[in-house]
């Protein structure tokens, strides 16, 4: 942790700006995905889960069959996306939010991997093979985990400075 702080502190202005902008763009995307789901009472993850293919499809489809599980998945998605988005945007608990974002995107990727031979009934908005936008966004979060910025530009800076939150990198 300490090393990461010191390293991060060595960013040049352009590097820092680029990383912060990347963090805010990913945060914005998460936040909007979450907020639209919360404000749409009709939204549910069911069709996404039902359409699952690949290695873990059985698990995801089982979730879709259980109304209780679906409610939990729906709430976790809605609030997970919103809170991660908010955190990345304003730079608070940035490290936790980045890790949570990676986990969430990994689940999305594994639920519907764009592997050759897998067909989905829900249309995608682009053309993908193995790599899709979910994976690219996931990689962006891995970059932000390796090169953190919350303690430089973001609310985490206040906690780092006052020494109250070591976690906040």
């Amino acid at each position: 942790m300490r090393r990461a702080h010191v390293d991060a502190a060595q960013y040049g202005g352009f590097q820092l700006t680029a990383l912060v902008v990347l963090r805010m763009l990913v945060g914005w995307h998460f936040l909007y995905e979450g907020v639209t789901k919360i404000t749409n009472p009709q939204w549910t993850s069911v069709s996404y889960l039902q359409d699952s293919q690949g290695w873990f499809s059985e698990t995801f489809r089982d979730l879709a069959l259980n109304p209780g599980a679906v409610s939990v998945v729906d709430v976790l998605n809605e609030w997970g996306l919103t809170l991660i988005g908010l955190a990345l945007l304003v730079g608070i608990l940035t490290r936790t939010a980045t890790v949570a974002g990676i986990v969430l995107l990994a689940l999305y990727y594994l639920a519907a991997p764009p592997f050759p031979g897998l067909e989905y009934s829900l249309p995608t908005e682009g053309s993908y093979i193995i790599v899709n936008k979910v994976l690219v966004e996931l990689a962006a979060l891995v970059v932000l985990l390796a090169l953190p910025t919350g303690h430089r530009v973001g609310l985490d800076r206040l906690f780092v400075k006052s020494g109250t939150a070591v976690e906040a990198a």
Binding site: M24, V90, V153, G154, R157, L158, K161
Partner: peptide, 20 residues
């Protein structure tokens, strides 16, 4: 200690939240 510069940098992205 937290200086004026820290507060500005800490809150730098909050206006974006307003735009959002």
């Amino acid at each position: 200690g937290i200086g004026r510069r820290d507060v500005l940098k800490a809150l730098a992205s909050v206006p974006v939240l307003g735009v959002f």
